[in-house]
Design a protein around this nucleic acid. Structure first.
Lengths: 219, 219
DNA sequence: ATATTACATGACTGAATAGTCATAATAAAC
DNA sequence: GTTTATTATGACTATTCAGTCATGTAATAT
């Protein structure tokens, strides 16, 4: 997945939308990829305001002049990073959906969690970037219009919930939207806990996730 | 509560710790309170980096020169705001604990939620400030050492869980810490949803909270 | 080989803004 | 009423940093 993370078509579309320049598009795949990964890594570590363009240029081994030939501004780099990540997430989720064989909602959620979190490289820059943007979105200095980073993820979760309600596995007295929100809350919360509090073993986290989600905390 | 929010002793302690100056301590309660409320309101709206000291001074009707006679630096104002809010939260939680009459964990959580969220002024600056700092803590430009803003809240939640486990109301196969974390995750998540997504009626939110927390999503 | 086009570079500029300081106003002391 | 200590003020400074530009280098075309 990491190889063609920067999909040609997606990049071309971003040129169209003036998020990046055509000069950037024409760069070698290697250089494009390096800039992207440096960006998400540094944004995750220092935050948007905490990261200076000079710092990024140094780490990505490009000059400042070049940077502004690739991106109209610093905020465009941020938007670029978010949109590429969004694309990556969408494709990941699509692939997971394609490969899933489970029928029960329990197993589908477990598979989703494993495929997305456990089986991907743990504590990767992608994850840290995801946590950063979801956490800071509503209080950020820059606002990227019309982006809901977990849209595809939520669609999938909502599908699981919907079918679960249909087969009688999941309670029907909650709105599908709200139930989906609660499911995503637990998944994201457990993921975030791995970073901020004492780490748990993934097996244990999985167990908590499914058991709590379905049975609650009642004895 | 809002009147003597800036407790004399707490303020004196902050002078000791060099977070604020003695000049600030000697200010009228009115002025101190105005600066505090302006700070949490603007930090919540613009974020730490997005707020200029000049902007704060204008809103709080003080001069920039005065500001730096009250606080050693901008980050000290931030620390001050966080510590005063922490104090406020601690006292609120203590009062709630003192006044609670419920015995069942279900009812205790419901009461905590109502007292802390529903009965306080909705969508207040305090709430928005709380959401801002909890969200941005791990990715912030400034780091306030050794502060865990929901410490008191978590202690209370953990107490509820512990007693619930003891009386057999709450499952014992999860660590109290983890269960407490899941409880707080749902409470904070529902609170945050009120700000970012479509608002729900509080009655409905309460219902979701308790029902989901205890029974899970199983039909 | 030469001209032309595309890309690379880092010193420079301008704007924003945290923090200072000389001076003014006010309060306290005597 | 005069002196002294304390607080208020906003113009000023120093720094950081996004974004520019003149110049250099490599690639391509003719």
């Amino acid at each position: 997945m990491k190889q063609n993370l920067l999909d040609e078509n997606t990049v071309a579309e971003l040129v169209e939308r003036k998020v990046i320049t055509d000069t950037f598009r024409k760069l070698s795949a290697d250089k494009k990829s390096r800039i992207y990964h440096t960006a998400i890594s540094l944004f995750a570590e220092y935050g948007y305001d905490g990261l200076a363009v000079d710092q990024l240029c140094e780490k990505a081994s490009i000059s400042k002049g070049s940077f502004f030939q690739y991106f109209p501004s610093k905020s465009h780099l941020f938007e670029f990073a978010i949109l590429i990540f969004d694309d990556y997430l969408q494709k990941s989720v699509l692939e997971i959906r394609k490969n899933e064989t489970a029928v029960l909602a329990r197993d589908r959620i477990l598979y989703l969690y494993q495929a997305l979190v456990v089986n991907s490289k743990l504590f990767s820059d992608e994850e840290r970037f995801f946590l950063y943007i979801t956490a800071s979105m509503s209080h950020s200095t820059v606002v990227i219009e019309g982006i809901d980073i977990s849209r595809h993820f939520m669609e999938y979760v909502n599908d699981i919930v919907e079918r679960g309600v249909h087969t009688g596995e999941i309670r029907a007295d909650f709105d599908v939207e709200v139930t989906g929100y609660l499911v995503s809350l637990i998944i994201e919360g457990l993921l975030r806990r791995q970073y901020t509090k004492d780490r748990m073993h993934w097996r244990q986290t999985e167990e908590y996730l499914i058991s709590f989600l379905f049975d609650g905390i009642t004895a």
